[in-house]
Amino acid sequence: MHIPGGSVSDRHPPAHRGLTQRSRLSPQAYLATTGRILRQLAADHRSVAMILVVPSLVITLMYFMFHDAPHRPGAPSPFNNACLIMLGVFPLVVMFLITSITMQRERVSGTLERILTTPLRRFDLLAAYGTAFSIAAAAQASLACIVAFWFLGFSTAGSPLLVFLIAIINAVLGVGLGLLCSAFARTEFQAVQFMPVVIVPQLLLCGIIVPREALPEWLQWISNVLPASYALEALQQVGSHPDLTAIAARDIAVVVGFAALALGLAAATLRRRTP
């Protein structure tokens, strides 16, 4: 293009090129973020203790509590029932607390805002957090299952690998719910306050205290839309059946779907920093 006093090239780079490059997944940034989260988590000894040590200690305490408890001949021991519940509940509760607090800490410190100025997209950032905490959850489930099955005599009719798998899925669900709730909290204390709202109703209505079929009909409807109900039912199926049942497979798929939905909503509601 010629103009008086000179010429200007009309071969301008497209204005959206940077946006296109920014929208692509950067494996290097994703892996770097995942590694940073794992290193940060490993440096927090209290979080490591909560993830790895506390569940095994509580399960061991329950073993001694129920060691001499009477039960009907041929029926599962009270410890078996309680341990099965704990292996499903602990990953959900612990990973919800750790994830929501850690994410809120990242936001308040400004780390989250700096990360979002890199080519890492919001969903990729959530995927990095999900990956890092899923690795921590796998370590938690591995240690808890080893202690329960090999040291405390816990047994199930189904494969221990299924118990291990369900425990990890529950932990990923806790990660997704923690990431989602952290988007609506302004302080770490507020992040913790979401637990009575999000986690406690699930524990009350999933069948731990009162069987779901014994609940009033309107509470059964609420229980049917809570993921913890399906997680516990899947564990109970594994505990009483030698093979994977259709009910257990359905319940596992439902919990996986809830976890994916929670991660997707967390990515959609992710804010750079707390206003």
Results as ranks from 00 to 15, higher is better:
residue 1 M to S: 08
residue 4 P to R: 08
residue 5 G to E: 11
residue 7 S to Q: 12
residue 8 V to C: 04
residue 11 R to I: 09
residue 12 H to F: 12
residue 14 P to F: 02
residue 21 Q to R: 09
residue 30 Y to V: 11
residue 30 Y to T: 11
residue 40 Q to A: 07
residue 40 Q to Y: 00
residue 42 A to N: 03
residue 47 S to T: 12
residue 48 V to W: 10
residue 48 V to L: 15
residue 50 M to E: 12
residue 53 V to K: 05
residue 53 V to A: 14
residue 67 H to A: 08
residue 68 D to T: 13
residue 81 N to I: 14
residue 86 M to V: 04
residue 88 G to S: 11
residue 89 V to N: 03
residue 97 L to H: 10
residue 98 I to C: 01
residue 103 M to L: 14
residue 103 M to A: 14
residue 104 Q to T: 11
residue 105 R to T: 12
residue 106 E to F: 15
residue 107 R to H: 11
residue 115 I to Y: 07
residue 118 T to L: 13
residue 121 R to L: 04
residue 122 R to G: 11
residue 126 L to I: 13
residue 133 F to H: 14
residue 135 I to E: 04
residue 137 A to H: 03
residue 138 A to L: 14
residue 139 A to H: 06
residue 142 S to R: 01
residue 147 V to E: 07
residue 151 F to G: 03
residue 158 G to T: 08
residue 163 V to R: 02
residue 173 L to T: 12
residue 174 G to W: 00
residue 175 V to A: 02
residue 178 G to D: 00
residue 179 L to R: 08
residue 182 S to Y: 00
residue 183 A to V: 06
residue 184 F to C: 05
residue 185 A to F: 01
residue 185 A to R: 00
residue 188 E to I: 01
residue 194 F to D: 03
residue 196 P to Q: 08
residue 200 V to K: 04
residue 201 P to E: 07
residue 202 Q to E: 08
residue 204 L to E: 01
residue 210 V to Q: 05
residue 210 V to M: 08
residue 214 A to K: 15
residue 214 A to W: 13
residue 214 A to L: 09
residue 216 P to D: 08
residue 217 E to F: 05
residue 221 W to D: 14
residue 224 N to V: 04
residue 226 L to W: 04
residue 227 P to N: 07
residue 228 A to V: 09
residue 230 Y to G: 07
residue 235 L to P: 02
residue 236 Q to I: 01
residue 238 V to F: 07
residue 247 I to W: 06
residue 253 A to G: 13
residue 254 V to S: 01
residue 255 V to M: 03
residue 257 G to Y: 06
residue 258 F to H: 07
residue 261 L to K: 02
residue 263 L to V: 06
residue 268 A to S: 07
residue 273 R to K: 14
residue 273 R to E: 07
residue 273 R to A: 13
